[in-house]
Every structure is written in structure tokens, then in C-alpha cells.
């Protein structure tokens, strides 16, 4: 991982020195274990701030929306897919970007680790595939693959789909993963069970909108939940309003979501709202053979009409 960091710094420094970009967007070391902070660097002498490890789960494409300057951006597989979506949706121009591709082997789910140790996490180090965690209860070692974010463990696009630089050779893509096991499990439930399931899932929501704001797709100037003329959704903690928010937000991501996991990662109360977006991803794949953000040449599934559309009503 430290080689990734070195390589990112080296590329960033070169891009800034050659004035090919005005800023490089990446991560800097956070103030707590397993937390890194998205940051920008404008001067070649500041590139030592940039780091890379398995705690860079925030999707950096989120920081590109409507920016005008020339930007170098560090991108793992999912970030790169959202960059593609951003370009297709005219939120940033391809010419503005120098994409520094990072082949990714998954990001760690801090909550999984926190749940299996005593006391709080004091320090964490990573060597090879091993994560060593120091806590009040002593030291414990984890196999990285066992503590990955759930979206990373089923990810089939670890390598950037679009890049100008690469910090390392591509990693092998995972092939034998069951991407939609969780969605299938919900589909197997009865109508009643499904209603109950989501009632429980969304109950802790505090409507802080971290999920929405961490999502690179959620860039509307005024979100439907904030709209007041007319007001579509109530602003209280009423379960129906909470459900409406999550349900409609998922829809706005239909055919666009890359399952980068930023929403779930950002949620302060640990709601897996990805179950909603994943269902739509699964439908897009099964109905239209579509996965979002794989290349710049094809229009999104819900953006085109084809004569063989699987929906009856449209013919």
C-alpha cells in the first residue's frame, strides 16, 4: 500500500509541476484510526499530504461536481465509474481531468472490526492482507478479505475503467462472487415480511442526509426532500416520510449507481440503504444488461429507448 502512496505522490507532483492540473484530489491521513479525509493539493511541495490505504472508501467523484478547473483525481474502480457518469451527465468535462487510476483490493469496513473487538480501536496497521488492530482489549489480527465493506467483497470492477495514469498494474477481478445474494434473500420474502424488513432497516434513520450527500449521483441543486414549493415529503421523523426519502432517492440513482458504498459508509447509524439501490442495479443488469459507468460511449439504460424493451406497456 505504501507503494501506492509513493506513486500517487510522484504522479501528483509531476502533474502539478508541469501545470497539467491546478489541483489534485486525493486522501490525507485522518485524525483517527481507519479514517482518511478527502483533500486537495495545489502545490507540488504539498503532495506529501496524500496517502493511500484501505480506508479510502469515500467516493472522490463527489468532489468533481460542477468544478471548473483542471483537476487530477485519484480514482479506484468505483470512483472511476462515477467519473464516467459525471462526464456523461455533463457535471465535469473529460478534458478537465487527469485520472490517476488505483487498482483496488477493497476497503475495510470499520464497523465490522469495531464489532469484533473489545473497547475502541486505538491503532491500526496493514501489511499484505493482514490488518492488525490495537484496542483496549489487546491486539487482534484480521484477514482483510473478512473485514471488507460488503460492496467491496462482491465488487467485479476493482480496476479503474478510465484513467490517464496508473499507480500499479491492474489487479485480478473477482469472478466467482454472488453479487446479489442479499437482494435475492429479500425477493424471497413475502410482501408482509418485506414491509417489516424495511421498516426495521430504516427505523434508526435520523435524516442527516449523509447517504445522499456522500453519493456522487446526488448533485441536484435542490433535492426533492428540500423542495418547498410544493413540499413533496414531510420533514419529521415520521416513518412514512423517512421511507419516502430513501425509496425515492434510490430511484434517482437507478441505472446510475455503481455500488461504491459511500452512502452506507457515511451513515452515522449504520443503515444499509444499498439494499434499495442494489435491487435497481440488479434489475438494470437483468432487464437491460446495463451496468453504470463502464464506458463513455453508451448512454445509460433509462436514457434510451430500444424496441426490445422488456416492459410491455411501452410497445
Amino acid at each position: 500500500m505504501s507503494t501506492y502512496t509513493d506513486k500517487i505522490r510522484e504522479i501528483a507532483q509531476r502533474l502539478l509541476k508541469e501545470c497539467r492540473v491546478e489541483m489534485v484530489i486525493g486522501f490525507r491521513q485522518g485524525s483517527m484510526p481507519m479514517m482518511n479525509e478527502p483533500c486537495f493539493v495545489r502545490k507540488p511541495e504539498e503532495v506529501d499530504r496524500l496517502v493511500w490505504d484501505s480506508n479510502c472508501g469515500i467516493n472522490l467523484a463527489n468532489y468533481l461536481t460542477n468544478r471548473k478547473e483542471k483537476i487530477g483525481i485519484v480514482a479506484k474502480g468505483c470512483d472511476s465509474r462515477n467519473i464516467v457518469t459525471h462526464i456523461l451527465e455533463n457535471k465535469v468535462k473529460r478534458e478537465q481531468l487527469v485520472i490517476i487510476g488505483v487498482p483496488c483490493q477493497g476497503m475495510i469496513d470499520k464497523r465490522k472490526i469495531a464489532a469484533s473487538i473489545q473497547g475502541e480501536i486505538l491503532a491500526v496497521s496493514e501489511t499484505g492482507g493482514q490488518i492488525k488492530v490495537k484496542s483496549a482489549g489487546g491486539e487482534k489480527s484480521f484477514n482483510k478479505n473478512e473485514v471488507l465493506q460488503q460492496n467491496c467483497s462482491v465488487c467485479v470492477h476493482r480496476n479503474p475503467v478510465i484513467h490517464d495514469e496508473m499507480v500499479a498494474a491492474p489487479v485480478a477481478e473477482q469472478t466467482d462472487v454472488d453479487q446479489y445474494a442479499d437482494v435475492n434473500a429479500i425477493e424471497a420474502m413475502s410482501t408482509e415480511e418485506r414491509w417489516e424488513f424495511f421498516e426495521k432497516l430504516l427505523a434508526p434513520c435520523i435524516r442527516c442526509y449523509a447517504c445522499r450527500n456522500a453519493c456522487p449521483l446526488c448533485y441536484c441543486p435542490t433535492c426533492f426532500v428540500d423542495e418547498s414549493k410544493p413540499q413533496w415529503v414531510g420533514k419529521s421523523q415520521d416513518p412514512m416520510d423517512v421511507r419516502t426519502f430513501h425509496f425515492l432517492r434510490a430511484f434517482h440513482c437507478a441505472g446510475r449507481c455503481t455500488d461504491c458504498g459511500a452512502c452506507e459508509r457515511a451513515c452515522p447509524v449504520g443503515i444499509n440503504m444499498r439494499l434499495l439501490t442494489k435491487k435497481l442495479n440488479k434489475d438494470c443488469l437483468e432487464l437491460y444488461g446495463w451496468q453504470a459507468g463502464l464506458n463513455l460511449d453508451s448512454r445509460p439504460a433509462l436514457d434510451v429507448y430500444k424496441a426490445n424493451d422488456p416492459e410491455d406497456f411501452i410497445h
Partner: peptide, 23 residues
Amino acid sequence: SFACLNCGTCTFSCPTCWCFDIQ
């Protein structure tokens, strides 16, 4: 402010934040 998502996590979890809306 660069990294900030403008979510309400900090203010909602904060014991000293009190701002509210009337509806």
C-alpha cells in the same frame, strides 16, 4: 471545508446544537 459533505451528522449528534425548523 473541502471534504465536508454538508450532511447533518455533526450537528444532529452534537449535544450543544439546537437549531430547528418549524413546519
